[in-house]
């Protein structure tokens, strides 16, 4: 199981990469394996400001649609439009080309609530 050390994680199996006050978000290798073949990523919330744990989109894998939740509060400044044509990038490269959104953070103190790689690994028994 690939769990990069430099990233932060949520209980909903999302990863977060922080650069200045911008967070790049995707789902973990564990999550993409559990979900199976991803056929659709729906994110229509670019430019919206959404609170932590609120829904920002959804993902369809096999025949199951799952809501996606904000790992941190902020404004969604970018959606990975490559996923519109190639949602399977999330399966192929969850931490790279399969990234989903970029959030401009509104409350950096929330970063303290995220898990580090070691803690996340324990939650999935990896």
């Amino acid at each position: 199981m690939n769990i990069p050390q430099e990233l932060k994680y949520t209980k909903d199996h999302e990863w977060v990469k922080i650069e200045a006050n911008v967070a790049t978000v995707g789902i973990t290798d564990f999550a993409q394996k559990e979900l199976g073949d991803i056929v659709y990523v729906e994110i229509e919330t670019v430019d919206e400001t959404i609170a932590v744990e609120e829904e920002f989109g959804s993902i369809e894998a096999v025949k199951t649609v799952s809501d996606l939740f904000m790992p941190l509060s902020g404004k969604i400044i970018e959606f990975n439009t490559a996923l519109e044509d190639d949602p399977e990038l999330v399966n192929k490269d969850p931490y790279g080309e399969g990234w989903m959104i970029k959030i401009e953070l509104s409350d950096e103190s929330e970063l303290a609530n995220l898990m580090d790689a070691k803690t996340y690994a324990e939650t999935i028994d990896a």
């Binding site: 199951t64 649609v65 809501d67």
Partner: peptide, 8 residues
């Protein structure tokens, strides 16, 4: 036929 939805 079957399908699913989850809000986690």
């Amino acid at each position: 036929g079957q399908a699913q939805f989850t809000n986690r």
